[in-house]
């Protein structure tokens, strides 16, 4: 991935300005630490929205609480920074109220899988047409470094001073079994890969779940670092069949060398379509 030709800053800035993707970014400076993987997600989402020509006033970014959840403030779209763990139900409500909107839910591993864990299966099984981008850094960053539901066993944090002993969740396997109709994984250290998958997730009609492996450069110096992730991540096998759920689950079970790419996708009735069918059955207008 190392460019062959030198890149000049002015050229790059010009290119970025002309692309139009800056229109999706707000003036607010992100509150994340320098080097945080979340920058690339911001960039990736702005890029994808721009490429897909989705009007920013028709975009709503919904988040819970956590480092990742600060995300809406850095986008120049409609945003709703809600409560810890509640991004998905709020996003569901927004989408049910107005199907024209592109709704993106954003959160971290604590927000999504600890406090908000009860909502994920239901968003997935209802197939609500939103995109859920989960930044997984395996730690609570906003509260300055506590153990999270995806922290590795043996991980030492301020609340696991004698090392974490709780087995980490396997989010991909969970989402696949919950019936999510689009499940992918990417890595903040691979920004181009990330941007591509964000775009695919946005394009998917139905609930799309994008898992982003992302280091916390401040509170995790030992475990999920760029160095470690660079060494362990890999692309999904080139012959991976993303319509095969069993295969996707098998791939998701390999946590030693996380595979990046689209694990699984299928087409089925979205919540919006289901509600339209209910209206038809009820004899709407009658």
């Amino acid at each position: 991935m190392i460019p062959q030709q030198p890149v000049y800053l002015e050229d790059k800035v010009d290119e970025i300005r002309q692309s139009g993707r800056l229109d999706y970014r707000s003036q607010a400076l992100p509150t994340w630490c320098p080097g945080c993987g979340y920058y690339s997600v911001t960039e990736g989402l702005a890029n994808a929205l721009n490429d897909l020509q989705i009007e920013k006033e028709n975009t709503v970014v919904v988040s819970g609480i956590g480092c990742a959840s600060r995300f809406p403030f850095f986008m120049d779209t409609y945003g709703f920074h809600t409560l810890h763990g509640r991004a998905l139900p709020v996003a569901t409500g927004i989408k049910v109220a107005n199907e024209k909107l592109t709704v993106v839910a954003i959160g971290g591993d604590g927000d999504g899988f600890a406090i908000g864990g009860g909502h994920i299966p239901h968003a997935a099984r209802r197939n609500v047409d939103i995109t859920y981008i989960l930044f997984d850094n395996g730690i609570y960053g906003l509260t300055k470094g506590q153990v999270s539901p995806t922290s590795a066993i043996g991980f030492k944090t301020s609340t696991s001073p004698f090392e974490n002993r709780d087995a980490p969740l396997n989010p991909l396997l969970m989402l696949l079994s919950y019936g999510a109709s689009w499940v992918g994984q990417t890595y903040a250290g691979w920004p181009h890969h990330l941007a591509g998958l964000v775009q695919q997730a946005l394009e998917h009609p139905g609930f799309s779940y994008l898992h982003v492996l992302s280091p916390c450069v401040t509170f995790d110096k030992t475990d999920r670092t760029y160095q470690n992730l660079d060494l362990t991540v890999r692309e999904l096998d080139s012959d991976h069949d993303s319509s095969d759920l069993a295969l996707a689950m098998q791939a998701a079970s390999d946590t030693r060398s996380p595979a990046l790419g689209l694990y699984y996708t299928s087409q089925r009735e979205t919540l919006g379509q289901a509600l339209d069918q209910v209206a038809l059955r009820a004899g709407a207008g009658g």
């Binding site: 139900p89 569901t92 009860g118 509600l275 209206a279 009820a282 709407a284």
Partner: peptide
């Protein structure tokens, strides 16, 4: 549904109020 409205039974009361506030 007869009058153009949409109703969803949520997974719990937190989700119910969250979705209502989203809407």
């Amino acid at each position: 549904p007869r009058h153009g409205g949409r109703l969803v039974q949520t997974e719990d009361e937190i989700a119910a109020i969250s979705a209502a506030i989203g809407a």
